[in-house]
Amino acid sequence: MTIEILEEARVFEGRQLRIKHVSASCHCDMVFSVFLPPQIEQQAVPVLWWLSGLTCNDQNFVTKAGAQRVAAELGIAVIAPDTSPRGEGVPDDSEGAWDFGLGAGFYVNATQAPFDQYYRMYEYIQQELPALVQNEFNLDLSRQGIFGHSMGGHGALTLALNNPQQYRSVSAFAPICAPSQCAWGQKALAAYLGDDRAAWQAHDAVALIESRGFDKPILVDQGLADSFLENQLKPELLHAACAKQSVSLTLNHRAGYDHSYYFISTFMEEHLRYHSAFLNR
């Protein structure tokens, strides 16, 4: 499989790359960004996947999160995929809404036309992209972690819950904890997966924990000045599910912080060091 390096910059003695390739999962060109720490020149390094939120692409994290300095110190590669397929012919929301379609893939494999041909972000993140980067870079895919923000926090949680053997660590910033119980999630899951709510459960962190538990700790940071907190994110449901199933959850309530990358960048170092404790051992 051929990759095209669109951009490259040196940062903290590592390499920040932006890469395009043809995706077999999404049937279109896909773009992702990867930070390669300096240690990769001497040894295989672990991988931390970042999943971004609604309206974002691979660049929001790269330019705003401030992750490269600490990732370089810790020797962790950080990969930020796009949030949806894009390009000519890729279907979008019929009314051009920002919370569905392009930029809002919700990290599921769509089963409903016309989205089922392209919107296969779950398979893309969990299978295709790891195989691609392992062939291209000196990465240790036996040491993977995953984290994300908002819709990407939902994706990180559900991917980790469904694939505990693949991901050693998981965390999230302001995740959509129970998409089956909020407007963003209900709109996306119905359109991508159909009206049978039983099919939604595999992509709902609260439902997954309630049904099967989880044998790894979870770290979540949530800003208390987040305008989406009450109606869309519902961390209290995640807290209750983890308590019921004896899942180790650290839920940090951050007074005064909103939903933005100002919030994410403030606590990014804590999350990177959290993941490092699992990936660098």
Rank of each mutant, 00 (worst) to 15 (best):
Glu4Pro: 00
Glu4His: 15
Leu6Val: 15
Glu7Arg: 11
Glu8His: 01
Ala9His: 12
Ala9Tyr: 06
Arg10Asn: 14
Gly14Lys: 08
Arg15Ala: 10
Arg15Tyr: 07
Gln16Ala: 02
Arg18Val: 13
His21Ile: 00
Val22Gly: 00
Val22Asp: 01
Ala24Tyr: 07
Ser25Lys: 09
His27Met: 10
Met30Ile: 05
Phe32Ser: 04
Ile40Arg: 09
Gln42Ile: 05
Gln43Tyr: 00
Ala44Gln: 15
Val47Trp: 08
Cys56Trp: 02
Phe61Pro: 01
Phe61Val: 02
Lys64Leu: 01
Ala67Ile: 06
Gln68Ser: 09
Leu74Asp: 02
Gly75Tyr: 05
Gly75Pro: 03
Ile76Trp: 11
Ser84Thr: 03
Ser84Cys: 06
Gly87Leu: 01
Gly89His: 11
Pro91Met: 09
Ala97Val: 11
Ala97His: 08
Trp98Asp: 11
Trp98Asn: 09
Trp98Pro: 07
Gly103Asp: 02
Ala110Phe: 07
Ala110Leu: 08
Thr111His: 06
Gln112Asp: 04
Phe115Thr: 03
Tyr118Arg: 03
Met121Leu: 15
Glu123Arg: 08
Glu128Gln: 07
Glu128Asp: 10
Ala131Asp: 11
Gln134Val: 01
Asn135Met: 09
Phe137Asn: 12
Asn138Val: 02
Leu139Gln: 04
Leu141His: 09
Ser142Leu: 12
Arg143Lys: 14
Arg143Ser: 03
Gly145Asp: 05
Gly145Gln: 03
Ile146Asp: 10
Met151Cys: 05
Gly152Leu: 05
Leu157Gly: 08
Leu161Asp: 03
Leu161Ala: 06
Pro164Asp: 08
Tyr167Asp: 06
Val170Ser: 03
Ala178Tyr: 06
Ala178Arg: 10
Ala178Trp: 01
Pro179Arg: 02
Trp184Arg: 09
Ala188Tyr: 03
Ala188Gln: 12
Ala191Met: 11
Tyr192Lys: 14
Asp196Phe: 13
Arg197Lys: 13
Trp200Met: 14
Ala202Tyr: 00
Ala202Glu: 11
His203Glu: 05
Val206Phe: 14
Val206Ile: 12
Leu208Asp: 07
Glu210Thr: 14
Glu210Lys: 15
Ser211Glu: 12
Phe214Pro: 05
Asp226Ile: 01
Ser227Val: 02
Lys234Cys: 07
Leu237Pro: 00
His239Leu: 15
Cys242Ser: 08
Ala243Tyr: 01
Val247Ala: 13
Val247Trp: 15
Val247Pro: 12
Val247Phe: 13
Leu249Tyr: 07
Thr250Gln: 15
Leu251Tyr: 11
Leu251His: 13
Leu251Cys: 08
Asn252His: 15
His253Thr: 10
Arg254Glu: 09
Ala255His: 11
His259Gln: 09
Phe263Asp: 10
Glu269Pro: 11
Glu270Cys: 01
Leu272Val: 10
Phe278Asp: 02
Leu279Val: 13
